[in-house]
């Protein structure tokens, strides 16, 4: 009995050594934004609280803004909000302003800080070219941004969602040039802005971004308009699958997919297919040439070359062979 009491007392005394925190004493952060202006770091925190209304709980987002001379100082400022400890373990998105991604050292320092501070790596990363304050004012809920990106991904294929872990893994891979999808605000409306390569001033437009995603098998469908006899038809490429290979100093790219269009008359199909294949081949070739010229690779091509030959010197001199195999949806052949 005495032993049991002693153990109980020991447990009670040790209770103060643990990181105990009631769930209602936490400030749950849904999304953060990091920006640097004139040597001052601005940290935007989108805090979500559940409010009980009748028989359901509604989520309410509130944005807090703190600053600091360094990133650590800014996070320190935001350690407690409304006397509650800031909780990042359910963080959904980190929004980084483009000003922090131009310099390699700066963004690497930022990433290593985020890795240490936030522990988990499954939150989404986005780059914003417009001031983050306006983003947070108009879209404090990460789901709005996420839904926008998903919609753009499905319709135009010019953007995708990337997690911190994925970007960090690409950054570590020497045969890969890491990038972030970029968005901007134009007259209070969200707009995709291609991708930004980390640690450089390079920026891809929407078309190049789409090709990069396509060759990385990150998009499976997208839509575009094609003019036929002064009329524009909406064409959708779906079930896209890209196969990459390297043989005899040539990158062999095979793309399979399906074409569909609700408005297009059947007799125009052949013409549209040829036009689509011609345009896509041209875009891919231009894209690869551009990357080869800069000796950068946002697709698995350089990685493939290294895997096949154990060296990447031949990257810039390699040729490209593109094979497209599309079929109209509903056709048996």
């Amino acid at each position: 009995m005495k032993r049991l009491l002693l153990i109980l007392l020991l447990f009670l005394f040790l209770g103060g050594c643990t990181d105990y925190n009631e769930v209602n004493n936490l400030t749950i952060v849904d999304m953060i934004g990091i920006e640097k202006q004139e040597d001052t770091y601005h940290l935007y925190l989108s805090v979500v609280t559940g409010e009980k209304e009748e028989n359901q709980t509604e989520n309410k987002h509130t944005v807090y803004h703190v600053t600091g001379k360094s990133l650590g100082e800014a996070f320190q400022e935001g350690e407690t909000i409304n006397n509650k400890r800031t909780y990042y373990n359910h963080l959904a998105m980190v929004f980084i302003h483009s000003s922090l991604l131009e310099n390699r050292e700066e963004y690497q320092e930022l990433f290593s800080f985020l890795k240490k501070k936030l522990e988990q790596g499954d939150y989404l990363l986005l780059e914003g070219t417009s001031p983050l304050a306006s983003f947070f004012e108009l879209y404090p809920n990460h789901e709005d941004l996420e839904n926008f990106i998903l919609k753009e991904k499905e319709t135009k294929g010019t953007t995708t969602l990337l997690t911190f872990d994925e970007v960090n893994a690409n950054d570590f891979d020497q045969e890969y040039d890491a990038y972030l999808p970029s968005i901007q605000l134009e007259e209070n409306t969200l707009k995709t802005n291609g991708i930004t390569l980390l640690g450089s001033n390079m920026h891809y437009d929407d078309t190049s971004s789409r090709i990069s995603y396509l060759l990385s098998n990150k998009i499976k469908e997208y839509s575009f308009l094609i003019p036929i006899e002064e009329k524009y038809y909406q064409i959708k490429l779906s079930d896209l699958h890209v196969n990459l290979d390297y043989q005899e100093n040539t990158f062999k790219i095979t793309i399979k997919g399906q074409l569909e269009s609700e408005e297009l008359p059947k007799e125009k199909r052949k013409e549209v297919q040829e036009e689509t294949e011609k345009n896509l081949t041209k875009e891919i070739k231009q894209f690869i040439e551009m990357e080869q010229e800069q000796n950068i690779s946002t697709t698995p091509l350089k990685n493939l070359l290294y895997f096949k030959t154990k060296k990447t010197e031949a990257y810039q001199k390699s040729k490209t062979n593109i094979t497209l195999s599309f079929a109209w949806k509903g056709d048996l052949s």
Partner: peptide
């Protein structure tokens, strides 16, 4: 609700918090 809040799904966490 006191130590391992990260194991809760986000919506459930908000619900408990509310």
């Amino acid at each position: 609700t006191t130590h391992n809040q990260d194991m809760l799904p986000f919506d459930l966490l908000l619900n408990f918090s509310a």
